[in-house]
């Protein structure tokens, strides 16, 4: 049995890590806003956020490809600013994955913040804690379950993406060739042993992550209880 080359594995892990961190930074304020806003635009924002759940990855990838194109305003501006194109680059892959995994980060967080309610934050405010202070010292720890779920789901979902990557990133070793693409390539070229090894790795890793989430979840306080 030939071992597959490990480049795509490291690239995938790198992508997952960067996307998870960047998406959490984006999803935390967005989910907080969605959980507390009274604006009538809320359903609209929620629907847009949930779109990646139902859109075929190829459709999402197609529109992202168009947006990232150097001839489009967004892609052009990025090119002018950095001298690089977004298409077929790691940065483009990160941005595309963030869009693709957005609902997996936002929805568990929003649910956790809604369960939390205003009560603990009011209590913290009456103890002289400022808004950011009480967000990090009260809201986040009390929403640990939601944060953990969002983190792991985002990470795992990013590892597993295929369609969007293929559309936006292509198959460039070291830059955009992630595991799912590598598996596809191995199958296409009938190198089934390598495909087996990588697929088994994905299966075991994904299962292990989900198992960890569900086990850890039991240890965190549900809601804020007292």
């Amino acid at each position: 049995m030939t071992l597959p080359e490990l480049g795509p594995l490291w690239l995938t892990l790198q992508l997952g890590l960067v996307v998870t961190l960047a998406l959490l930074a984006l999803a935390l304020p967005l989910a907080w806003w969605l959980a507390h806003t009274r604006t009538r635009a809320k359903p609209l924002v929620e629907a847009v956020t949930a779109l990646p759940l139902v859109l075929p990855p190829t459709v999402l990838g197609f529109y992202l490809l168009i947006t990232f194109s150097p001839r489009a305003p967004f892609g052009g501006a990025y090119l002018a600013l950095t001298g690089e194109t977004l298409t077929f680059s790691f940065t483009g892959l990160v941005l595309a994955s963030m869009v693709y995994s957005l609902p997996f980060a936002v929805q568990p967080l929003q649910a956790a913040f809604e369960t939390l309610g205003r009560a603990p934050m009011e209590a913290a405010a009456c103890l002289r804690a400022r808004p950011l202070d009480r967000f990090f010292t009260v809201a986040l720890p009390l929403s640990a379950r939601g944060v953990l779920t969002a983190t792991v789901l985002t990470f795992a979902h990013t590892l597993g993406e295929f369609g969007v990557v293929l559309m936006v990133g292509g198959n460039i070793p070291g830059r955009t060739k992630v595991i799912s693409i590598a598996i596809y390539e191995h199958v296409e070229t009938i190198r089934l042993a390598e495909a087996h090894a990588l697929s088994a790795l994905m299966l075991v890793a994904s299962f292990a992550m989900l198992l960890a989430v569900y086990s850890l979840n039991r240890r965190f306080p549900q809601g804020w209880g007292a």
Partner: peptide, 13 residues
Amino acid sequence: VGYVFQDARLFAH
């Protein structure tokens, strides 16, 4: 102000 709520609102974490 010090506020004591009916439901105590202690921080569970």
